[in-house]
Design a protein around this nucleic acid. Sequence first.
DNA 1: CTCCGTTGTTAAACCGGTTTAACTATTGAA
DNA 2: TTCAATAGTTAAACCGGTTTAACAACGGAG
Lengths: 339, 339
Amino acid sequence: MPKKKPTIADVARRAGVSKGAVSLTLNNRPGISQDTRERILSAAAELNWQPDRRGRSLAASRAFALGLVIARPPRLLEADPFFPAFIAGVEAVLAEREYTLVLQVVRPGQAEADAYRNLARGGRVDGVFLSDLRHADPRLQLLAEVGLPAVTLNRPDVRSPFPAVCLDDGPGIAAAVRHLVELGHTRIAHVSGPSRFLHGAGRARAWRQALAEAGLPPGPVVESDFSAAGGAAATRELLAGHPRPTAIVYANDLMAIAGQTAARAMGLSVPEDLSVTGFDDCELAAYMHPPLTTVATNAFGWGKRATAVLLDLIEGEEVADVELPPTRLVLRGSTAPPS
Amino acid sequence: MPKKKPTIADVARRAGVSKGAVSLTLNNRPGISQDTRERILSAAAELNWQPDRRGRSLAASRAFALGLVIARPPRLLEADPFFPAFIAGVEAVLAEREYTLVLQVVRPGQAEADAYRNLARGGRVDGVFLSDLRHADPRLQLLAEVGLPAVTLNRPDVRSPFPAVCLDDGPGIAAAVRHLVELGHTRIAHVSGPSRFLHGAGRARAWRQALAEAGLPPGPVVESDFSAAGGAAATRELLAGHPRPTAIVYANDLMAIAGQTAARAMGLSVPEDLSVTGFDDCELAAYMHPPLTTVATNAFGWGKRATAVLLDLIEGEEVADVELPPTRLVLRGSTAPPS
DNA sequence: CTCCGTTGTTAAACCGGTTTAACTATTGAA
DNA sequence: TTCAATAGTTAAACCGGTTTAACAACGGAG
């Protein structure tokens, strides 16, 4: 005989009050005397009762959940250090409130829009995180239509009704370029992420601008896809060019590591013949040979902050855009003066 | 004026029937004529109505969600290829049903038990995945108490009331050891994961057993923590021993990659002076120098299968344990005959 | 002593679905 | 023609909470 979970009615009966009184007490609302309040709380404790989220959800028209839709092919997701850290940050904040995180991993394409639509229509979540922003991102329009609150990670390139929580990639990339310039490099290439992503395009822009500020001509750039395979291929392409670049700034660690290996396979040694820098500062970066000079981000903190803003937004508070401390360069062994 | 979402009552009114009829139609239940059925469906389509999950949840006493609690420090999670692939597999199945995945990332410790308890008491999920099984795992007892259905990834070492979906690590590890033996190695060491995890202990056991079957004495083993830092440290420890091992079988890729680098830092070259094998076959493995010989798993398929079983279990169907095709060895360049 | 304003509490409506007992209409058999 | 069985449909109860209008009890002012 499975003992059924107690309901608010059981607690009310036990405390000798009405359901309403229990609800008011539980939510710290005024109108219940200290005396009854205590009686109710102890009755609840004795029954080990906790309000059922389903009932609350229905009455409050809230899901008490936030959504994160990740549209990436599994193989790419697997090696990306961003989301795990970001999610951990999200959870750190949610754990204190009564919210949970609903995750959807979909293949890029139509499934993505459907995922958002389902989350909204079914009332499964009260708000979503918008990551991996794209050029003229159609999701902004979609979410506005279905009326689902959101926060964007970084600022969209079109008008947006949602608050943005920003962590600027630029300074880290710029620092990497300056560092290479100071070492004496003049032919500094870039392997970028897909340009339809704002972060892909943004890192490329920061690289180009830093070169310009150093008075150097724009170096060669190859657009890639953040994967190891893509990083290796892009590297081979760059190193086949004439004149050969003496340094490559990669848009993420995974491509940098694969690129480093590809360079070696072509008979070049890092950092003597080629300097490389990454982006992310994944744990492995410090354990490569040579250890990778890279740009550290704070995905965990980003997750925390974005969650706080989204919850505030949902609860109807006034929210403003947030600017987090920018990325910074971590110097290791993969950069050296050109030979 | 925000246009409110239509409810089942709106659809009923529009189709000129009762709420009950709409519900029956929607769930493909008998008792409604083909004629009315069509009228109802088109009314629903015109209003762009979809049942609200909150109402359904309450009435059906179901959350229409599955839970995954991951108890790992963020830094470790970030580099692990397992969960992203596993989750992608889960989502591939959930997408077809009307379920979602609720994710909780917690620090190991008390928070973990609380997470499961909250998921159960609040009625947030209908079942959970039990991963990273530990020796005499206390979560089995906990879940049985709160009455939350579950599937375990692999078989616990104690009596379990839950179905197990298994993917055996052993054959892959054994194949790695046999491969090294065939190359002529006789001093084959192991860097294991934490022994409190069944997979940590299981891979160590498979390694030991394969050595025994080859007629070799048990080699040195260092217990580590699946991190790059841990892998590097364990490698230094092993290589400082006398006689020095000529091959190391690592319990995951991350430790293997860091170990490979550590060996080189000690003046040894891979694979000439030291052969290494990993476990996971993360994307990067193929892009190392030398590319890493490793054991491929199928986390995606595991996620799919585990989800199917868990959903069946929740829906009251008879379920049996499942055995997936075991792991297999992927030969690359990090293994060679001892010099 | 009456009237009024508080304070504490309850009963009932409500959120948006599902389920079921009861009712109506139709059909087939006797 | 009557009756039983069956198919189609509905009204109402229910799931477990929240919210609110109404009401009772009480103290203080006039």
